[in-house]
Amino acid sequence: MARAVTTQRKALNTTLAWIIGLLIFFPILWTILTSFKTEAEAIANPPVFLFFDWTLENYAVVQERSNYMRFLWNSVIIAGGSTILGVLIAVPAAWSMAFVPSRRTKDILLWMLSTKMLPAVGVLYPIYLLCIQLGVLDNRLALVVILMLINLPIIVWMLYTYFREIPGEILEAARMDGAGLKEEILYVLTPMAIPGIASTLLLNFILAWNEAFWTLNLTSVDAAPLTAFIASYSSPEGLFFAKLSAASTMAIAPILILGWFSQKQLVRGLTFGAVK
């Protein structure tokens, strides 16, 4: 039983937590606000907080100059494609490990996890070279495959931990009721695991969307997603805060919204089920 707390104590907690919360959130808030300012207001000293002439001009300029939509589309394809492909490959594997465990299941799971630990920089050149040789440098499909492989261990693990919570007896009942393997997975397992599959999709979409090693190193123009688009703003120094903010806001807004939905699954996905 949680104990009743005095209102005073609760007010103190609330105040402290909100101050810290807003401080941590401030850079994001500031970026969003600045994106609606003119460039002059963006660098004004003292800074203007809310009372400025709100404008959408920056968004229009960013889209016009850099063809923002193309980068956005690349991000959607790369993050979405790699996630969906990964889940399609991972569902059967996770089914096997959760419901037909063998002596090697644990080793396989841990080995899969270990591939995730491989530092990307250690295999940077081989992958770079392979992409050149196969003619897929700066190619969306190549990034879909690479990000899928990077996140596959997490996808398998997340699905595995969700599947393990489904009682095996239900699948056995389906088998007794005449369901084949396909029907068992399609009609019984998948509908029961929909919440788990959805969170897996969500978290891995976020991870793929924000991935900034391979997307920076293996793309230049055609396949460049938002990570690369934003990085391109780092070179020209100068007075462009409002436009930078507009571009940043557009790059993070979709993910912030998805992220709010997935905060619980985040813990489970990123700790491989070790903290629930």
Binding site: I20, G21, L22, I24, F25, P27, I28, W30, T31, I206, W209, N210, A212, L216, L226, T227, A228, I230, A231, Y233, S234, L244, S245, S248, A251, I252, I255, L256, L258, G259, W260, Q263, L266
Partner: peptide
């Protein structure tokens, strides 16, 4: 909670630039 967690979802290139 949401305010505190938000930075984790920000793209690394965005947070670096901002």
């Amino acid at each position: 909670r949401i305010l505190v967690i938000a930075p984790f979802f920000v793209m690394p290139t965005v947070s670096a630039l901002v």
